[in-house]
Design a protein around this nucleic acid. Structure first.
Lengths: 334, 334
DNA sequence: CACAATCGTGCACACGTTAACAATAGTCTT
DNA sequence: AAGACTATTGTTAACGTGTGCACGATTGTG
């Protein structure tokens, strides 16, 4: 069918071993011979059979990029940036295999033979079992976006608690005290972290608010919309709302405008993620920027390092988030 | 290292041939023997070595999902929906390999051995060369999202010309005649199709507008913003704008509001794509919905059909777009 | 009872590649 | 000039799996 090193060997009048060595640029082979073999290979349009290579070299040339879920809860921008970041690093040394963890009915097929390394973009505690499976098989692993304690696992994430603290502090420094919180999806670690940062800022500045100022959300537009409607129905409305992501913040803004009120004149809103559209809604959304692409790049680089140097770097790296101030917060002249 | 069929064979007291047959449920093997072997395999936590299988069966278990580019011009929502659609179909029969076509420096590594089939989500005429390469290698192929004439290629796309016609007709039926167009990214086939649909509607209703009512865009928020600023500076402003995608429509709305005007009271806006946030901006955006996820699902289903039945279905399928009417268009009472 | 037919299993090889070891020729050392 | 060493290439086996063919055992047939 397709051409193999044996075909080349015949034409060059050497053994297939010599061809293999020549094409892998082994120092054992004479430069002249190499050149001749390379030429023939090119003329025949030879491509190595990666299945055969994999079998004997015990490497798959596959890198897994796993998300908690592909079917729900993952925001499109997040997904895109993560893939882009990883892809920019691996170039054509590896194939990138994208999967949702919830698509696996069994982890049995995840072996050291089928993946040279795996990157998990984790958004839920439920990912723990796959992480342990992978770690136990000894496959090089890096977990992004969520803190993880399993031994021997490289962990890279943004400091979301710090980001939320930043955002909430900003609101307070602008004079707000009646600050409400739209929480993230339950079970997602990010939801907890962001809430923690919010609470720490409140505590830090000695501000307390009633429990009805905290409403759970699902990270989607609709839940932000609903949450805001609840706040608007309150006797004593908040003057500012911190939403645990931008999508919900958009939903909230929509609810505010439907109620005949204005952002930020009547109510201030802060989001989280700096999604692509945050800068272009009206008013432009003040939000916290997570360096997703940077995280995934960093993760890919270190994973490749671990694979190729066969070392076992295992630390936790926190990348700083940054507050992007736009127009959705009003300064109160208290 | 890891367990192989030979290990199982030893424990079961049979040859590895029998084990192979048993695990593949061959009718040659006694039911009783099969059962015994399956049990041992399970106990040893056996997983087949896919490199070895691939080598002998001449199948890679890989499906390629290629985008024109991962680094620019592809919208996140589009990207996400496409992957989701394909992923929902393949389950765990295949591994999904995601790549940007512009990452390939040479297509040499794309062979029948490394991909059982390939799905190209094409956004540019430049993809023609990779399409021809793949077709010439005889790899089952389906091209989504862009019309393609290469023989023997399955082609599934939305009828964007029809969608743009729909949108523009709607504006006209609402009484608008001074209608401007923000075009898509040059070189993208979709840009041409959408413009064509727009022009056909204008012609159909016998409306003509000056050339300055057509401005090129880049499919991103910023270019929509700029384009709108140009329209606003005109002596005789348009009463409605058709933007070739939602992101640019958002940029346009932003520009309008910055100029102290209102959508749709002063200017109407229609987008294209029905991006997730279209329903949640203020005012909610009237737009054209492309069934991306449906397209990619359909494409994946048919590709698998072609691979598994070794047939060679080769037709062009057009899926209808649909106008989603929201709040960004005003009815003129002429 | 002899022979054919059927069923279940094993032997040996193949897939395309790499690598340990062997072999050959040429060069250097003393 | 003989032995040692080096440079280059070849021989052979190995990776883990699937399959054509041969083989033995059991059953059926006359």
């Amino acid at each position: 069918m397709s051409v193999t090193i044996k075909d080349i060997a015949k034409l060059a009048g050497v053994s297939h071993t010599t061809v293999s060595r020549a094409l892998n640029n082994s120092p054992l082979i004479q430069e002249e011979t190499k050149e001749r073999i390379r030429l023939i290979a090119e003329q025949l349009d030879y491509t190595p059979n990666y299945s055969a290579k994999s079998l004997v070299l015990d490497r798959s040339y596959n890198l897994g990029l796993f998300f908690t879920t592909l079917s729900q809860g993952t925001s499109a921008g997040f997904f895109y940036e993560a893939i882009r970041g990883v892809n920019s690093v691996i170039q054509d040394r590896y194939q990138l295999i994208v999967k949702g963890i919830d698509d696996y009915s069994s982890f049995q097929s995840i072996t050291r033979k089928s993946f040279d390394g795996i990157i998990i973009v984790s958004q839920s505690d439920d990912d723990q079992s796959i992480i342990e499976h992978i770690a136990s098989k000894g496959i090089p692993l890096v977990v992004l976006n969520r803190p993880v304690s399993t031994a021997g696992v490289l962990n890279i994430l943004s400091d979301e608690e710090q980001g939320a603290f930043l955002a909430c502090s900003y609101l307070i420094e602008q004079g707000h005290t009646r600050i409400a919180l739209i929480e993230g999806r339950k079970g997602f670690k990010s939801a907890q972290n962001r809430k923690d940062g919010f609470e720490r800022a409140m505590k830090h500045y000695g501000i307390s608010t009633p429990p009805i100022y905290r409403v759970p959300g699902l990270y989607d537009l609709e839940s932000g919309h609903k949450a805001m409607q609840q706040f608007l129905a309150l006797e004593e409305r908040p003057t500012a709302v911190f939403s645990c992501n931008d999508e919900m913040a958009l939903g909230a803004m929509k609810a505010i405008s439907e109620a005949g009120m204005q952002v930020p004149a009547d109510i201030s809103v802060v989001g989280f993620d700096d999604t692509v559209f945050a800068a272009y809604v009206t008013p432009a959304l003040t939000t916290v920027r997570r360096p997703i692409e940077q995280i995934s790049k960093e993760g890919a680089v270190r994973l490749l390092g671990n694979i190729e140097n066969k070392q076992h770097e295992t630390e936790q790296v926190l990348l700083k988030t940054e507050l992007v101030v736009r127009e959705s917060v009003k300064k109160l002249s208290t």
